[in-house]
């Protein structure tokens, strides 16, 4: 089959005005979206994350109308209940409903992950864009700052930060992002360095456009694909980091439920009630796996290097 873009390749006579087709324009975004949609597994993984995110957003409704438990409601008559009709996924040592806590925990885990990615991308993109576009001493200063940030062992920084600030979802996101933006800045700077060599940047300058316009209208759209890929692959990674911090007691503090601290809590009852470990573990595993599969699908669909 001849693709739609073949039609335009037939050059027309110099003065000729063709009868234009009504075929929709093939923007890069349309084509990438089509490629992504064609990837069944990737779409499935993305849908799973969307479902988890929707459940997390609607956690109070789930609590009120579906499970009929609050995440911190203690019921000492119902400790270590097995999964069943009363507690669908069982209860913990204080009789708290596991399903409800997983749903509320999704708020924390996914919320922190998305927020962290958003902060890392915003800061990293700004820094990388300025460094790559202006070069010279601005580049030197900003990139040495990035080198410094990336040279600090993350775990020590996390420990220090969680001592200084009592971790809540927002401070936790800021703490994790304070390390994550460096990699994004490097990525964006590299892309900008490559994109700004292309003639259309010179063409834009030749018509008198200001730097801000050049960066916002030309450089950003051209580095956006790598940002989208970085974001989709980043979510899974950050869920893991956040869970690890919670597990170590450096993250979200009990009694607030998070997937990570549910694991910590369940550790002591591993042999007695294995599902208390298995459920948050499987949830984390599934979410991270889905994020990575989705991230890879996004990369396959959006990577600019696959297409001019």
């Amino acid at each position: 089959m001849i693709g739609p873009s073949r039609v335009a390749e037939l050059d027309m006579p110099s003065a000729g005005i063709e009868t234009g087709g009504s075929r929709p324009a093939q923007s890069y975004w349309n084509e990438s979206w089509e490629r992504l949609r064609a990837n069944r597994i990737g779409v499935g993984a993305g849908a799973l994350i969307l479902v988890f995110a929707a459940i997390a957003i609607m956690a109070p409704l789930v609590s009120a109308f579906i499970t009929h438990y609050q995440p911190q409601t203690i019921n000492l008559d119902q400790t270590f209940a097995k999964p069943g009709s009363v507690h669908w996924l069982g209860s913990d040592e204080l009789g708290r409903d596991t399903l409800t806590r997983l749903v509320w925990g999704a708020r924390v885990s996914l919320g922190v992950a998305f927020l962290t990615v958003a902060i890392s991308l915003t800061v990293g993109t700004s820094v990388g864009m300025l460094a790559g576009y202006y070069g010279g001493w601005i580049d030197d200063v900003l990139m040495r700052l990035v080198d410094t940030v990336l040279a600090i062992p993350a775990i020590f920084l996390f420990i220090l930060m969680s001592i200084l600030f009592r971790p809540n979802p927002f401070t936790l996101a800021v703490i994790v992002a304070s390390v994550g933006w460096g990699a994004v800045a490097r990525l964006v700077r590299g892309e900008v360095l490559s994109v700004k060599q292309r003639d259309f940047v010179l063409a834009t300058r030749s018509i008198g456009a200001r730097d801000t316009r050049l960066m916002a209208r030309h450089l950003l759209p051209n580095v956006l694909p790598v940002l989208i890929v970085a974001a989709s692959l980043g979510v899974g990674q950050i869920i893991l980091v956040e869970a690890a911090l919670d597990f170590l007691g450096l993250g979200i503090q009990p009694p607030t439920a998070s997937w990570g601290n549910m694991l910590t809590n369940a550790e002591s009852y591993f042999f007695r009630s294995g599902w208390l470990v298995a459920l948050p573990g499987v949830t984390i595993f599934t979410t991270v796996l889905a994020s990575n599969i989705f991230g890879n699908a996004v990369r396959d669909a959006f990577d600019p290097r696959l297409k001019s």
Binding site: A25, R198, F200, L202, A203, T204, S206, R217, P221, N222
Partner: peptide, 17 residues
């Protein structure tokens, strides 16, 4: 003043209509 470029592929921003 204006300029016309050599490479018709690199001189147009691929993300713009």
């Amino acid at each position: 003043m204006a300029m016309i470029f050599q490479d018709p592929y690199a001189s147009l921003d691929p993300r713009q209509t």
